[in-house]
């Protein structure tokens, strides 16, 4: 009589069975063991807060009461948000902020990367200088720009008045019409080096022999860029744009420090509005519902990001 242990039986079943999920897991058991601590930490510091935020979004949390005195109100917080005028205004601001910052920072970064891809004297120094905005602390940069923009004695205003180009300093961040574009400029200044670095890395992967061959075939500079360089950069461009978009959706420091969402809510984006609702006005329920909406938006962007990455891997695998 043969005695079969449970472990041996399991191994036998796995070996004899079809290559299913369980078998794959078993084959990668060492990998799972290595990532287990990280997953455990993530469950505590990410999964639970997400769960709690979702739960809280279905409760009313009056500012005069403690959080434990919350009352269940179903989807009322979501209804209140989606029917509020402020939400749509803040959403519009968020879209302008995210799209404006992302696209311009990407285009500027790409253009700079193309320029720096060529050999010329001082290229290394220039590259180092251009990275400075990205490595400066966002908090410090916000304060510096606040002073540069200052409506009474900012540097830009002083130069314009000094050169006789303006009677009084321009109003950058104390006006509802100029505040958001002014903040976007700061954000682009800070982010374009990131796009530049990503695209420079991408440019290294463009096969030189293809470019030379195209040149030999009489392709113009634009044709070489459009038909050879750009197709090779499509995936890295997608990833860069998605990363920038996610960062901008979540961008808090610059608008909060420079204007606090003002004046008159003109520079409030989702994340600053959520912060004010939660920590300034203690509407934890509404702020949580807002956060869930933000989370879903970011997850959607994250999905496309992962897809773009997978595309990269597939492409590399087939190459």
């Amino acid at each position: 009589m043969t005695i079969v242990t449970g472990k041996a039986e399991a191994r036998r079943r796995l070996q004899s069975g079809k290559p299913g999920v369980l078998r794959k897991i078993w084959e990668h058991r060492a990998d799972y063991t290595y990532v287990l601590p990280a997953i455990a930490v993530m469950l505590i510091v990410i999964a639970y807060p997400i769960y709690y935020t979702i739960e809280l979004s279905f409760f009313k949390t009056p500012p005069g009461l403690q959080l434990r005195d919350k009352t269940f109100i179903g989807i009322d917080n979501y209804t209140a948000i989606l029917t509020s005028e402020v939400f749509w205004r803040v959403t519009w601001n968020t879209l302008i902020w995210t799209l404006g910052s992302t696209l311009i920072a990407f285009v500027l970064g790409f253009a700079t990367a193309l320029a720096l891809h060529r050999e010329f004297v001082g290229r290394g120094v220039l590259r180092a200088i251009l990275i400075i905005p990205w490595v400066i602390s966002a908090v410090a940069a916000s304060y510096i720009w606040k002073w540069i923009y200052h409506s009474d004695f900012g540097i830009i205003g002083a130069v314009l008045v000094g050169l006789g180009l303006a009677d009084r300093p321009p109003n950058f961040i104390d006006s509802v019409s100029t505040v958001l574009p002014s903040l976007i400029v700061v954000n682009i200044w800070r982010e374009f080096p990131f796009a530049m670095i990503m695209m420079m890395a991408g440019l290294q992967t463009v096969p030189e022999q293809l470019l030379r061959a195209a040149q030999v075939d009489g392709a113009s500079a634009w044709q070489r860029f459009w038909h050879v360089t750009f197709p090779h950069l499509r995936n890295v461009s997608t990833v860069t744009i998605l990363l920038l978009a996610v960062a901008n959706f979540n961008s808090f420091i610059i608008p909060w420090i420079m204007t606090g969402g003002g004046p008159s809510n003109a520079s409030h984006i989702w994340i600053t509005h959520i912060y004010e609702l939660a920590f300034g006005r203690q509407r934890w329920g509404v702020a949580s519902a807002y956060s869930v909406l933000l989370f879903l938006t970011l997850m959607t962007l994250g999905y496309f990001y992962v897809r773009a990455l997978s595309g990269n891997e597939r492409q590399e695998g087939s190459a």
Binding site: P63, G64, D174, S175, V176, G262, P263, S264, N265, A266, E276, G280, R281, Q282
Partner: peptide, 24 residues
């Protein structure tokens, strides 16, 4: 009042900003 911080730090400044920016 427990609501005083929100009134003084958010509602009153908002009122000023709404009037001074021409938003209202």
């Amino acid at each position: 009042l427990p609501q005083a911080p929100e009134i003084m730090n958010i509602i009153v400044p908002d009122m000023l900003q709404n009037a001074l920016t021409g938003a209202m």
